[in-house]
Design a protein around this nucleic acid. Structure first.
Lengths: 164, 164
DNA sequence: ATACGATACATCGCATACGATTTATTTTAA
DNA sequence: TTAAAATAAATCGTATGCGATGTATCGTAT
């Protein structure tokens, strides 16, 4: 029980730290954090639809639609109708977009965490990773037991050594 | 770097899990998660001001003011002027508040995590806690190095074995 | 060919969430 | 004592964020 309190507070703390890091970066570029995430995703895919964006960013279509609308009226993104499917919209970067913001925003938090990890000795880093793996797998097991529909955000984490 | 990606995704995943658990609990009682947090805090303190609530819940005064306003018009909370200081407001529970919601909401996520931990062997639980301690202390060190104003949310976590 | 279901977006209503400003009151300082 | 500073809330403006609904378009089955 004691442990559970500590872990809950730790998760909150770590989450807040990552959020603040990202927010700081975004605001240095004159946009909000969700806006930076959208821009980075458009940059990564060159041109995308609202639907694809909402899937990749795990936000609802309406939220993404709103953010894209604001970015378009700010002149940072462009929306054009998809000729292949007139229901769909093609979103692309506007030319007058500052260079910095296009770096993938998720890279920023990864970078921040890399620097954090570098403060630890290699064997300590191993302990951090090992503990996290245990906790994540336990949560997944718990979700399965509770019949939670984890498919929404299951893919967020699977296991490392996967994508490269 | 590989590790950093995994840890970032893990933190997101764990955070989402806790949020969903809390949200589910709140909505079973007909309120939103922030509303449940406010109610629980009012319950814990019997009667509080907006200012105290915003400090405890780490939300701005304006956000808390809005939520309290909605809960008051819903009939779940009561606002009366503080006779000692007419600028201040005394917030208390209304009588027609369903019993369940008054349980401290942070207990709910602690409980959920306890159940998660119970799926692990004691030595695995130790590993989880040890890893988390290492990570949290490394983040704090990083924040100190970067001169981040951690005082806002520093008290969220210090170390276990503290409050009981 | 057309009607019907599915799909992609936009929009609306609501609830956070925050910073900035305003208002009322209290405290402090001259 | 009274003017100025400080404090507590409320309010405003903006941006998420979600679910529900509306609208146009596309696919398909008859």
């Amino acid at each position: 029980m004691e442990k559970a309190v500590f872990i809950r507070e730790s998760i909150d703390f770590l989450q807040q730290y990552l959020m603040k890091s990202l927010q700081k970066y975004a605001e240095e570029n004159g946009v909000t954090l969700p806006q930076a995430r959208v821009i980075a995703e458009v940059f990564a895919n060159k041109s995308v639809s609202i639907k694809v964006l909402s899937e990749k960013l795990k936000m609802t279509q309406s939220t993404v639609s709103d953010i894209v609308e604001r970015l378009t009226s700010k002149g940072l993104l462009m929306k054009t109708q998809n000729p292949k499917d007139k229901r769909s919209v093609v979103i692309s970067l506007s030319s007058e977009l500052s260079e910095g913001i296009t770096a993938n925003i998720s890279e920023i938090s990864t970078l921040a965490l890399s620097e954090v990890l570098s403060l630890l000795k290699p064997e300590e880093q191993e302990k951090v990773t090992a503990g996290m793996e245990l906790l994540v797998s336990a949560v997944k097991e718990k979700m399965k037991l509770d019949g939670m529909d984890h498919y929404d955000f299951f893919d967020v984490v699977y296991f490392p050594d996967k994508n490269k």
